[in-house]
Amino acid sequence: MNIFQTNQKILMALDNLIQVVAKLRSPQGGCPWDLEQTQTSLIPYIIEEAYEVVDAIESGNQEAIADELGDLLLQVVLQAQVAQDNGDFNLQQVAENITQKLIRRHPHVFGDVEISNSEQVHHNWEKIKEQENPSTPLLSQKLSKYHRSLPPLMASEKISKKAAKAGFEWENVEGVWEKFEEELGEFKEALDSQNLVHAQEELGDLLFTVVNLARWYKLDVSMALRGTNQRFIQRLQLMENYAEKPLSTYSIEELETLWQKAKKQLNG
């Protein structure tokens, strides 16, 4: 099968999906649930499906990845259908907008700009973004967007990077470590004072400093935490396999023994 035939099959499959979604949203014989949905009501599903795609990718299960990408694609098509029903925009505009943006932001592919590495690609991308929005908002407005639209940990990573780029940066990593020690001490003091509101604020400051440390060492905080969560669950599963009774009935010393046994097995 040549590229043309493959593309034709892809377009037919996409068209079938668009027609199915349109039918689900049709006032004549459509689905009551789909008809009730708004752009806002669908937000949780977009977030959920995006995370499930990530989980499938990390599993390496190609069949699961394809399935989860389909669920995420459905959310894109459904959002566009809701907007079309409201007379705002449609899927054609969505596709055309992103196509034009990709061409515009890749002049080294679709134009005569020459680059030699991915760092230059990123630099050009940011420069073109600024040109697209000549009335650049204040830094605080940019950072507020991340705060509103991203999960807290991802928002902190973005905010940290953008603030550093604007000059809010330590001279060296030793300064970040000093800040970490300072925030850790303030968190402990807040806990000792039993002021939970203040303790929560200090915990946030401590976590934000950890994000900055990760940035200095070029580590991905979100991926690091996902990895820890996964390892914890894997070890817990092994503990449950070893256990001859519910884990809740074991002493803390016995649980520690099972934990170390599971950890040793996973580490090979």
Rank of each mutant, 00 (worst) to 15 (best):
E52W: 02
K218C: 05
E169Y: 00
E186S: 07
F232S: 12
E183R: 11
M1D: 10
E201R: 03
G60M: 14
Y146P: 01
V176H: 00
Q28V: 10
A22R: 11
M1H: 12
I233Q: 14
W33P: 05
N133K: 09
L11Q: 05
W33T: 12
G30L: 05
G111W: 08
N124G: 01
E169R: 01
L258V: 15
P27A: 03
E169K: 00
V53M: 01
P151V: 02
R215Y: 03
E48A: 14
E256D: 15
W177R: 11
D55K: 10
V173E: 14
V54E: 12
Y51Q: 15
V210S: 04
W216S: 04
L236Y: 07
Y250I: 10
L72G: 05
K261V: 13
V210F: 00
S135E: 15
V173W: 09
L150R: 10
N117I: 08
Q84N: 14
L238T: 03
E240M: 11
R235V: 13
L78R: 15
F4E: 08
E132G: 09
I252M: 15
A80P: 10
V77I: 15
W125R: 13
Q265G: 06
R231H: 05
P32M: 01
V77K: 08
E183W: 05
F232A: 12
C31L: 04
S222D: 14
S140M: 09
P44M: 06
P32S: 03
L69T: 04
A199C: 07
K162A: 01
E174Y: 04
L143S: 03
L238E: 05
V221R: 00
Q28N: 09
N133W: 05
E114K: 13
Q200D: 09
Y45V: 08
E169L: 00
I159L: 04
F187T: 11
L266G: 02
A50I: 06
G268V: 07
P137C: 09
L14R: 00
E119P: 00
K263Q: 13
L255D: 06
L255A: 04
S118C: 01
P246T: 06
F110W: 14
L14D: 01
K263F: 08
E119Q: 11
L184P: 02
N90Y: 12
M12E: 11
S118A: 08
L247A: 08
E256F: 09
A164R: 03
Q260L: 15
P134F: 11
L184F: 08
V221T: 12
S156A: 11
A83C: 15
K261H: 11
A164Q: 07
R235L: 11
T228F: 00
W259E: 13
A155L: 01
V21N: 01
L191C: 13
E178L: 12
E68K: 01
K179T: 06
G111V: 11
E68I: 00
S193R: 15
A243F: 09
V82M: 15
V53K: 02
E119Y: 05
Q230K: 13
A64W: 05
E178C: 07
T99S: 13
W216A: 01
Q100R: 15
Y242C: 05
L153S: 00
G29I: 04
L203G: 06
W33E: 13
Q62F: 02
N2F: 07
E119H: 08
H147M: 07
L73V: 10
M12R: 00
L139S: 02
L35N: 10
E68S: 00
